[in-house]
Design a protein around this nucleic acid. Structure first.
Lengths: 190, 190
DNA sequence: GCAAATTAATGATTTATTCAAG
DNA sequence: CTTGAATAAATCATTAATTTGC
Protein backbone atom coordinates (compact mmCIF):
# COMPACT_ATOMS: atom_id res chain seq x y z
CA UNK A 1 0.00 0.00 0.00
CA UNK A 2 1.03 3.53 0.55
CA UNK A 3 1.30 4.08 -3.09
CA UNK A 4 -0.52 7.18 -2.20
CA UNK A 5 1.69 10.19 -2.29
CA UNK A 6 0.44 11.33 1.00
CA UNK A 7 2.42 14.27 2.01
CA UNK A 8 -0.16 14.63 4.62
CA UNK A 9 0.23 16.21 7.89
CA UNK A 10 1.56 19.62 7.95
CA UNK A 11 -1.00 20.93 10.24
CA UNK A 12 0.95 23.90 11.28
CA UNK A 13 4.08 22.53 9.78
CA UNK A 14 4.75 20.06 12.45
CA UNK A 15 7.39 17.52 12.04
CA UNK A 16 6.84 14.15 10.57
CA UNK A 17 4.98 13.40 7.46
CA UNK A 18 3.40 10.08 7.97
CA UNK A 19 0.25 10.78 9.74
CA UNK A 20 -2.24 13.42 10.42
CA UNK A 21 -1.54 15.62 13.36
CA UNK A 22 -4.59 17.60 14.24
CA UNK A 23 -4.23 21.12 15.42
CA UNK A 24 -5.83 22.12 18.67
CA UNK A 25 -8.51 23.95 16.80
CA UNK A 26 -9.30 20.90 14.86
CA UNK A 27 -9.44 18.82 17.95
CA UNK A 28 -11.58 21.34 19.65
CA UNK A 29 -14.03 21.44 16.84
CA UNK A 30 -14.16 17.73 16.47
CA UNK A 31 -14.76 17.25 20.13
CA UNK A 32 -17.45 19.81 20.05
CA UNK A 33 -19.22 18.02 17.30
CA UNK A 34 -18.86 14.77 19.08
CA UNK A 35 -20.22 16.16 22.25
CA UNK A 36 -22.91 17.78 20.29
CA UNK A 37 -24.19 14.42 19.34
CA UNK A 38 -22.39 13.54 16.20
CA UNK A 39 -20.98 10.11 16.74
CA UNK A 40 -20.86 8.65 13.29
CA UNK A 41 -20.91 11.31 10.64
CA UNK A 42 -22.12 10.52 7.24
CA UNK A 43 -19.95 10.98 4.24
CA UNK A 44 -21.56 14.29 3.59
CA UNK A 45 -20.87 15.45 7.04
CA UNK A 46 -17.36 14.18 6.90
CA UNK A 47 -16.85 16.15 3.82
CA UNK A 48 -18.11 19.33 5.30
CA UNK A 49 -16.12 18.85 8.38
CA UNK A 50 -13.04 18.21 6.39
CA UNK A 51 -13.56 21.31 4.41
CA UNK A 52 -14.13 23.36 7.46
CA UNK A 53 -11.18 22.06 9.33
CA UNK A 54 -8.84 22.37 6.46
CA UNK A 55 -8.64 26.00 7.33
CA UNK A 56 -6.56 25.14 10.30
CA UNK A 57 -4.30 22.64 8.73
CA UNK A 58 -4.03 19.88 6.30
CA UNK A 59 -6.69 17.29 6.75
CA UNK A 60 -8.36 14.60 4.79
CA UNK A 61 -11.68 12.98 4.96
CA UNK A 62 -10.23 9.79 6.20
CA UNK A 63 -8.72 11.62 9.10
CA UNK A 64 -12.10 12.81 10.14
CA UNK A 65 -13.56 9.43 9.58
CA UNK A 66 -10.91 7.77 11.69
CA UNK A 67 -11.12 10.39 14.31
CA UNK A 68 -14.76 9.72 14.97
CA UNK A 69 -14.27 6.02 14.89
CA UNK A 70 -11.45 6.19 17.33
CA UNK A 71 -13.08 8.65 19.58
CA UNK A 72 -16.19 6.64 19.91
CA UNK A 73 -14.28 3.47 20.44
CA UNK A 74 -12.13 4.99 23.09
CA UNK A 75 -15.07 6.38 24.84
CA UNK A 76 -16.54 2.97 25.13
CA UNK A 77 -13.24 1.49 26.07
CA UNK A 78 -12.76 3.97 28.79
CA UNK A 79 -16.11 3.31 30.22
CA UNK A 80 -15.64 -0.37 30.09
CA UNK A 81 -12.40 -0.04 31.90
CA UNK A 82 -14.06 1.91 34.57
CA UNK A 83 -16.67 -0.69 34.99
CA UNK A 84 -14.06 -3.32 35.25
CA UNK A 85 -12.15 -1.40 37.79
CA UNK A 86 -15.29 -1.17 39.74
CA UNK A 87 -15.49 -4.86 40.11
CA UNK A 88 -11.88 -5.56 40.63
CA UNK A 89 -11.19 -2.61 42.74
CA UNK A 90 -7.68 -3.31 43.78
CA UNK A 91 -5.69 -0.94 41.78
CA UNK A 92 -2.77 -0.42 43.97
CA UNK A 93 -0.07 1.53 42.42
CA UNK A 94 3.48 1.66 43.48
CA UNK A 95 4.45 4.79 45.16
CA UNK A 96 6.96 6.89 43.46
CA UNK A 97 9.11 9.50 44.95
CA UNK A 98 7.56 9.55 48.35
CA UNK A 99 6.08 6.92 50.49
CA UNK A 100 2.96 8.86 50.25
CA UNK A 101 0.53 6.17 49.81
CA UNK A 102 1.45 2.83 51.07
CA UNK A 103 -2.26 2.54 51.00
CA UNK A 104 -2.30 -1.05 51.80
CA UNK A 105 -4.85 -2.90 49.85
CA UNK A 106 -7.98 -3.86 51.51
CA UNK A 107 -8.09 -7.51 51.54
CA UNK A 108 -11.43 -8.58 52.72
CA UNK A 109 -13.45 -6.33 50.60
CA UNK A 110 -15.07 -7.70 47.59
CA UNK A 111 -18.20 -5.79 47.26
CA UNK A 112 -16.66 -2.45 47.23
CA UNK A 113 -18.64 -1.65 44.22
CA UNK A 114 -21.45 -0.85 46.49
CA UNK A 115 -19.62 1.98 48.05
CA UNK A 116 -19.07 3.97 44.98
CA UNK A 117 -22.69 4.79 44.66
CA UNK A 118 -22.70 5.65 48.25
CA UNK A 119 -20.89 8.78 47.51
CA UNK A 120 -24.00 10.03 45.99
CA UNK A 121 -25.60 9.95 49.32
CA UNK A 122 -23.52 12.88 50.30
CA UNK A 123 -25.68 15.13 48.39
CA UNK A 124 -28.74 13.79 49.86
CA UNK A 125 -30.60 16.98 50.29
CA UNK A 126 -31.69 17.35 46.79
CA UNK A 127 -34.93 19.15 46.31
CA UNK A 128 -37.43 16.84 44.82
CA UNK A 129 -36.17 14.09 42.76
CA UNK A 130 -37.91 10.87 42.50
CA UNK A 131 -34.83 8.80 42.44
CA UNK A 132 -33.25 7.29 45.38
CA UNK A 133 -30.73 9.84 46.36
CA UNK A 134 -30.93 9.19 49.98
CA UNK A 135 -30.40 5.52 50.23
CA UNK A 136 -28.76 5.72 53.55
CA UNK A 137 -27.43 8.38 55.74
CA UNK A 138 -24.55 6.30 56.75
CA UNK A 139 -22.76 6.04 53.55
CA UNK A 140 -19.85 3.89 54.25
CA UNK A 141 -21.00 1.28 56.54
CA UNK A 142 -21.92 -1.02 53.83
CA UNK A 143 -18.61 -0.82 52.25
CA UNK A 144 -16.48 -2.25 54.93
CA UNK A 145 -18.25 -5.41 55.29
CA UNK A 146 -15.03 -7.24 54.93
CA UNK A 147 -13.70 -8.86 58.01
CA UNK A 148 -15.04 -12.32 58.38
CA UNK A 149 -12.28 -14.50 57.25
CA UNK A 150 -10.37 -11.82 55.52
CA UNK A 151 -6.95 -12.29 56.86
CA UNK A 152 -6.06 -8.65 56.61
CA UNK A 153 -2.37 -9.10 57.01
CA UNK A 154 -1.28 -5.55 57.36
CA UNK A 155 -4.50 -3.78 57.24
CA UNK A 156 -3.90 -2.08 60.47
CA UNK A 157 -5.27 1.26 59.60
CA UNK A 158 -8.55 0.25 58.30
CA UNK A 159 -10.88 -0.55 61.06
CA UNK A 160 -11.68 -4.17 61.28
CA UNK A 161 -15.37 -4.08 60.95
CA UNK A 162 -17.01 -1.60 63.09
CA UNK A 163 -16.99 1.03 60.50
CA UNK A 164 -15.79 4.07 62.16
CA UNK A 165 -14.33 5.27 58.98
CA UNK A 166 -15.35 8.71 58.29
CA UNK A 167 -16.34 10.62 61.30
CA UNK A 168 -14.66 8.83 64.07
CA UNK A 169 -11.25 8.15 62.80
CA UNK A 170 -10.33 11.71 63.15
CA UNK A 171 -8.03 12.52 65.92
CA UNK A 172 -10.33 14.93 67.48
CA UNK A 173 -13.93 15.42 67.00
CA UNK A 174 -16.15 17.90 68.51
CA UNK A 175 -19.82 17.98 68.70
CA UNK A 176 -20.20 19.90 65.56
CA UNK A 177 -18.04 17.68 63.54
CA UNK A 178 -21.11 16.47 61.90
CA UNK A 179 -22.07 19.93 60.97
CA UNK A 180 -19.29 20.23 58.56
CA UNK A 181 -20.75 17.92 56.10
CA UNK A 182 -24.15 17.56 57.44
CA UNK A 183 -26.02 20.09 55.53
CA UNK A 184 -25.67 23.64 54.73
CA UNK A 185 -29.01 24.43 53.32
CA UNK A 186 -27.74 26.69 50.63
CA UNK A 187 -27.48 29.50 53.09
CA UNK A 188 -29.79 31.85 51.36
CA UNK A 189 -28.59 31.19 47.95
CA UNK A 190 -29.48 33.82 45.42
CA UNK B 1 -21.70 46.75 49.46
CA UNK B 2 -22.09 46.28 53.11
CA UNK B 3 -20.83 42.84 52.72
CA UNK B 4 -23.39 40.69 54.25
CA UNK B 5 -22.16 39.35 57.51
CA UNK B 6 -22.02 35.71 56.92
CA UNK B 7 -24.02 34.53 59.78
CA UNK B 8 -23.33 31.00 58.88
CA UNK B 9 -20.01 31.04 60.51
CA UNK B 10 -20.53 33.56 63.15
CA UNK B 11 -19.89 31.68 66.31
CA UNK B 12 -16.54 30.38 67.18
CA UNK B 13 -14.87 31.09 63.92
CA UNK B 14 -14.01 28.36 61.52
CA UNK B 15 -12.88 25.65 63.77
CA UNK B 16 -15.85 23.58 62.92
CA UNK B 17 -17.59 25.78 60.55
CA UNK B 18 -18.16 25.86 56.91
CA UNK B 19 -15.72 23.88 54.98
CA UNK B 20 -12.77 21.69 55.22
CA UNK B 21 -9.48 23.44 55.38
CA UNK B 22 -6.70 21.05 54.67
CA UNK B 23 -3.50 21.22 56.57
CA UNK B 24 -0.25 21.55 54.70
CA UNK B 25 0.59 17.96 55.43
CA UNK B 26 -2.67 16.82 54.03
CA UNK B 27 -2.23 18.86 50.91
CA UNK B 28 1.25 17.57 50.50
CA UNK B 29 0.17 14.01 50.73
CA UNK B 30 -2.75 14.46 48.44
CA UNK B 31 -0.63 16.14 45.83
CA UNK B 32 1.89 13.40 46.10
CA UNK B 33 -0.71 10.82 45.42
CA UNK B 34 -2.05 12.78 42.53
CA UNK B 35 1.33 13.18 40.99
CA UNK B 36 1.86 9.55 41.62
CA UNK B 37 -0.88 8.77 39.24
CA UNK B 38 -3.92 8.58 41.40
CA UNK B 39 -6.49 10.64 39.66
CA UNK B 40 -9.76 9.10 40.63
CA UNK B 41 -9.48 7.09 43.77
CA UNK B 42 -11.96 4.41 44.40
CA UNK B 43 -14.10 4.44 47.43
CA UNK B 44 -11.76 2.07 49.11
CA UNK B 45 -8.81 4.22 48.42
CA UNK B 46 -10.65 7.25 49.58
CA UNK B 47 -11.29 5.54 52.82
CA UNK B 48 -7.71 4.67 53.30
CA UNK B 49 -6.53 8.09 52.41
CA UNK B 50 -9.02 9.64 54.74
CA UNK B 51 -7.97 7.44 57.53
CA UNK B 52 -4.37 8.22 56.97
CA UNK B 53 -4.77 11.92 56.66
CA UNK B 54 -6.95 12.17 59.65
CA UNK B 55 -3.96 12.19 61.90
CA UNK B 56 -3.13 15.64 60.66
CA UNK B 57 -6.52 17.11 61.16
CA UNK B 58 -10.15 16.63 60.80
CA UNK B 59 -11.08 15.23 57.47
CA UNK B 60 -13.86 13.31 55.90
CA UNK B 61 -14.08 11.03 52.97
CA UNK B 62 -16.00 13.49 50.96
CA UNK B 63 -13.24 16.00 51.37
CA UNK B 64 -10.84 13.61 49.77
CA UNK B 65 -13.32 12.78 47.13
CA UNK B 66 -13.91 16.40 46.30
CA UNK B 67 -10.27 17.21 46.42
CA UNK B 68 -9.44 14.76 43.73
CA UNK B 69 -12.34 15.78 41.62
CA UNK B 70 -11.45 19.40 41.79
CA UNK B 71 -7.80 18.88 41.33
CA UNK B 72 -8.24 16.79 38.27
CA UNK B 73 -10.80 19.10 36.78
CA UNK B 74 -8.66 22.13 37.30
CA UNK B 75 -5.67 20.44 35.91
CA UNK B 76 -7.54 19.72 32.79
CA UNK B 77 -9.03 23.13 32.64
CA UNK B 78 -5.71 24.79 32.97
CA UNK B 79 -4.20 22.67 30.29
CA UNK B 80 -7.02 23.22 27.94
CA UNK B 81 -6.90 26.90 28.38
CA UNK B 82 -3.26 26.88 27.62
CA UNK B 83 -3.78 24.98 24.46
CA UNK B 84 -6.55 27.20 23.43
CA UNK B 85 -4.58 30.34 24.02
CA UNK B 86 -1.78 28.86 22.05
CA UNK B 87 -3.73 28.73 18.90
CA UNK B 88 -6.23 31.38 19.53
CA UNK B 89 -4.10 33.70 17.49
CA UNK B 90 -5.35 32.28 14.29
CA UNK B 91 -8.94 33.23 14.39
CA UNK B 92 -8.87 33.58 10.67
CA UNK B 93 -12.46 32.83 10.28
CA UNK B 94 -15.40 34.16 12.10
CA UNK B 95 -16.82 30.78 12.69
CA UNK B 96 -14.69 29.97 15.62
CA UNK B 97 -17.20 31.46 17.93
CA UNK B 98 -19.84 29.14 16.69
CA UNK B 99 -17.57 26.57 15.40
CA UNK B 100 -19.78 23.66 14.94
CA UNK B 101 -22.98 24.74 13.45
CA UNK B 102 -22.64 26.76 10.31
CA UNK B 103 -20.52 24.44 8.33
CA UNK B 104 -21.47 25.71 4.98
CA UNK B 105 -21.75 23.11 2.32
CA UNK B 106 -19.00 22.40 -0.03
CA UNK B 107 -19.21 24.06 -3.32
CA UNK B 108 -17.49 21.79 -5.70
CA UNK B 109 -19.35 18.72 -4.79
CA UNK B 110 -22.86 18.13 -5.70
CA UNK B 111 -23.63 14.52 -5.45
CA UNK B 112 -21.84 13.89 -2.29
CA UNK B 113 -24.74 12.16 -0.81
CA UNK B 114 -23.80 9.15 -2.76
CA UNK B 115 -20.60 8.96 -0.87
CA UNK B 116 -22.21 8.00 2.29
CA UNK B 117 -22.73 4.43 1.38
CA UNK B 118 -19.16 4.34 0.49
CA UNK B 119 -18.19 5.03 3.98
CA UNK B 120 -20.37 2.32 5.13
CA UNK B 121 -18.92 -0.01 2.65
CA UNK B 122 -15.51 0.73 3.90
CA UNK B 123 -16.13 -0.57 7.26
CA UNK B 124 -18.76 -2.96 6.27
CA UNK B 125 -17.70 -6.46 6.64
CA UNK B 126 -14.03 -6.56 6.14
CA UNK B 127 -11.77 -7.38 8.96
CA UNK B 128 -10.32 -4.34 10.50
CA UNK B 129 -7.08 -4.78 8.73
CA UNK B 130 -8.71 -4.94 5.40
CA UNK B 131 -10.73 -1.94 6.17
CA UNK B 132 -7.67 -0.01 6.95
CA UNK B 133 -6.02 -1.02 3.77
CA UNK B 134 -9.00 -0.05 1.83
CA UNK B 135 -9.02 3.31 3.38
CA UNK B 136 -5.42 3.87 2.64
CA UNK B 137 -5.88 3.05 -0.93
CA UNK B 138 -8.73 5.30 -1.46
CA UNK B 139 -8.34 8.03 0.98
CA UNK B 140 -9.52 11.45 0.26
CA UNK B 141 -10.73 11.54 -3.20
CA UNK B 142 -13.06 8.79 -2.54
CA UNK B 143 -15.24 11.14 -0.73
CA UNK B 144 -14.35 14.37 -2.30
CA UNK B 145 -14.40 13.69 -5.92
CA UNK B 146 -15.61 10.25 -5.99
CA UNK B 147 -15.85 9.42 -9.60
CA UNK B 148 -18.77 7.17 -9.49
CA UNK B 149 -17.15 4.01 -10.39
CA UNK B 150 -20.49 2.58 -10.26
CA UNK B 151 -19.90 -0.36 -8.12
CA UNK B 152 -21.87 1.00 -5.30
CA UNK B 153 -25.03 -0.91 -5.02
CA UNK B 154 -25.88 0.93 -1.90
CA UNK B 155 -25.99 4.18 -3.66
CA UNK B 156 -29.44 3.57 -4.83
CA UNK B 157 -30.75 4.75 -1.63
CA UNK B 158 -29.63 8.24 -1.10
CA UNK B 159 -30.33 10.64 1.67
CA UNK B 160 -32.13 13.87 1.00
CA UNK B 161 -30.41 16.09 -1.42
CA UNK B 162 -30.42 19.03 0.83
CA UNK B 163 -27.74 17.64 2.99
CA UNK B 164 -28.82 18.89 6.28
CA UNK B 165 -25.84 20.17 7.99
CA UNK B 166 -25.75 18.81 11.44
CA UNK B 167 -28.26 17.24 13.62
CA UNK B 168 -26.63 18.46 16.70
CA UNK B 169 -27.65 21.98 17.45
CA UNK B 170 -27.35 21.41 21.10
CA UNK B 171 -25.37 23.23 23.64
CA UNK B 172 -21.82 22.50 22.72
CA UNK B 173 -19.16 23.94 24.78
CA UNK B 174 -19.79 27.45 25.54
CA UNK B 175 -16.80 28.15 27.59
CA UNK B 176 -15.25 30.70 25.26
CA UNK B 177 -14.89 33.28 27.98
CA UNK B 178 -11.94 34.69 26.30
CA UNK B 179 -10.44 36.18 29.33
CA UNK B 180 -12.27 34.90 32.32
CA UNK B 181 -13.49 38.41 32.56
CA UNK B 182 -13.17 40.88 35.31
CA UNK B 183 -16.75 41.68 35.02
CA UNK B 184 -17.43 39.75 38.10
CA UNK B 185 -19.17 42.07 40.46
CA UNK B 186 -17.58 41.59 43.74
CA UNK B 187 -20.80 42.01 45.53
CA UNK B 188 -22.51 39.36 43.59
CA UNK B 189 -23.06 37.48 46.72
CA UNK B 190 -26.62 37.44 47.66
C1' DG C 1 2.09 47.49 60.85
C1' DC C 2 -2.94 46.89 60.61
C1' DA C 3 -7.37 45.94 58.84
C1' DA C 4 -10.82 46.93 55.36
C1' DA C 5 -11.35 45.97 50.57
C1' DT C 6 -10.36 43.39 46.70
C1' DT C 7 -8.68 39.41 44.13
C1' DA C 8 -7.28 34.71 43.57
C1' DA C 9 -7.80 29.67 45.15
C1' DT C 10 -10.27 26.16 46.16
C1' DG C 11 -13.84 23.40 48.67
C1' DA C 12 -18.64 21.94 47.78
C1' DT C 13 -22.95 21.59 44.72
C1' DT C 14 -25.44 21.35 40.83
C1' DT C 15 -26.06 20.21 36.03
C1' DA C 16 -25.24 17.77 31.66
C1' DT C 17 -22.87 14.27 29.46
C1' DT C 18 -21.89 9.42 28.60
C1' DC C 19 -22.79 4.30 27.63
C1' DA C 20 -25.45 0.52 28.14
C1' DA C 21 -29.26 -2.38 30.46
C1' DG C 22 -34.10 -3.07 30.66
C1' DC D 1 -36.99 5.00 24.39
C1' DT D 2 -36.30 5.18 29.05
C1' DT D 3 -33.55 4.73 32.92
C1' DG D 4 -29.30 3.66 35.91
C1' DA D 5 -24.79 4.68 37.30
C1' DA D 6 -21.05 7.39 37.26
C1' DT D 7 -18.48 11.43 36.17
C1' DA D 8 -16.77 15.67 34.48
C1' DA D 9 -18.07 20.41 33.48
C1' DA D 10 -19.92 24.36 35.24
C1' DT D 11 -21.17 26.86 38.95
C1' DC D 12 -21.68 28.50 43.63
C1' DA D 13 -19.63 29.88 48.06
C1' DT D 14 -16.03 30.58 51.37
C1' DT D 15 -11.44 30.91 52.65
C1' DA D 16 -6.45 32.63 51.74
C1' DA D 17 -3.67 36.19 49.63
C1' DT D 18 -3.00 40.52 48.18
C1' DT D 19 -3.62 45.23 47.80
C1' DT D 20 -4.63 49.67 49.64
C1' DG D 21 -5.17 53.67 52.75
C1' DC D 22 -4.16 55.15 57.03
Amino acid sequence: MTSVPVTTNGSGGRSGGSRWCPTPEQVMLLEGMYRGGLKTPTATQIQQITSRLSIYGKIQGKNVFYWFQNHKARDRQKLRKKLMALHQQHRLYPTLDHPFLPLHPIVGVEDVSTCKPMFNSWKVDLPSDQTCKLMCECPHMTMMQMDHHGSTPYCTRVPPKTLQLFPLTTTYLKEDDQDQGHDQPTSSKS
